[in-house]
Simulated scan of single mutants.
Amino acid sequence: MAVKRRYESSYRQEQARRTRRAILDAAAVLFVTPGYAATPLTAVAASAGVAIQTVYKTFGTKQALLSALVDVTVAGDDEPVALAGRQFVADIRALPDARSKLARYARHLAETHARLAQMMLALATAATADPDAAAIWQKNADERRAGMTMFAADLAATGELRPDRTRDAVVDVLWLAMDVRNYDWLVRQRGWPVERFEQWYVDTVAAAVLTPR
């Protein structure tokens, strides 16, 4: 009986994960077109093939669904692993010099933007008129700045930052350079190869915050 209960529990958990994923996938499409404000949760439920009550049970509110969607899209998965525990952060910290760290982050940034650019641009548009979307956009902006504050500290530990740049100034540059709108303009609209975008990121940030070679 114990084995059967474990099997049933495992099956229910897997079924819940699949349901959650289906709802997130549906929201990822509909929150871009026709857009967050124009998409009722009933439309998300219909697209995901679940009852509206299931959407409410899983996420509670439309804003919570949007927040979860942003978090999962940024992370690339729904594993409960904090930013500091992600592999790319460990990779960056293990590198010996600032330009190598910037190059590793540029690769992570390009991979992330390829996954989330369309949704984040739609969120930015929605945030101009919808308070829920504006709150999620601000939350993401705060998290990005916190991440860049951590990155700035790692770069500072190399001893390669320009002495005339304050820590806040370095964070500002990193925060600006990582903005998804840079990727959208250069890669998605201007057609830059991803490798050229990554090199642009490294060269731009290095010129602004690192001591000259």
Rank of each mutant, 00 (worst) to 15 (best):
A106H: 09
A64G: 00
T166L: 02
F197H: 01
K101M: 13
H108W: 15
A122T: 10
P96D: 09
G159Q: 04
M178Q: 15
Y201D: 00
V173D: 04
T204H: 06
W137N: 12
V202M: 08
V32R: 13
T19D: 04
R162S: 09
A206P: 05
E14H: 13
T211K: 14
A133V: 08
V32I: 12
D77G: 12
A82E: 13
A26E: 05
Q63G: 14
E8C: 00
L161K: 10
V81P: 07
T73K: 15
R86G: 10
L186N: 00
G35V: 07
R196T: 12
V171A: 01
A114I: 06
R145E: 10
T149F: 05
V55F: 03
Q63N: 06
A156T: 01
L30E: 03
A68D: 14
M120T: 08
A206W: 12
A146S: 13
P163L: 10
L210W: 01
Y36D: 00
D71H: 11
K101H: 05
P80N: 07
A152Y: 01
T33Y: 02
E111I: 00
R145Y: 07
V173R: 09
W137R: 15
A82P: 00
S67F: 08
R144D: 06
D142M: 13
N140M: 10
P131C: 07
Y36Q: 06
A2N: 10
A16R: 14
D154N: 08
L161M: 11
W175L: 00
K101I: 04
A206S: 14
F88A: 06
V81Y: 07
D179G: 03
F31P: 03
L176R: 01
R145T: 09
A135M: 09
D78I: 00
D77Y: 10
D179C: 10
D154V: 15
G147R: 08
R104W: 00
A82L: 12
M150R: 14
G191H: 03
Q15Y: 11
A46P: 03
R213G: 11
D168I: 03
A37M: 10
L41E: 12
S47I: 03
D71M: 10
D77A: 13
R99A: 04
R5I: 14
P193F: 11
A146M: 12
I92E: 08
R167K: 06
R196W: 14
T125M: 03
A152G: 06
E160I: 10
M119V: 05
L116Y: 11
A126Q: 06
A110T: 14
Q118C: 07
R188W: 04
Q87I: 08
M119H: 14
T128F: 11
G147M: 04
T42L: 11
R12S: 12
T125I: 00
G76T: 11
L30T: 05
L95R: 06
R21P: 00
T19S: 08
S100H: 10
A28Y: 01
S9K: 15
V194W: 05
K62E: 07
R12L: 15
L30I: 04
Q199P: 02
V70M: 08
A82T: 11
G147K: 07
D172R: 04
E143F: 10
R162N: 06
A117C: 14
N140P: 03
A177L: 03
K62Y: 02
E14T: 11
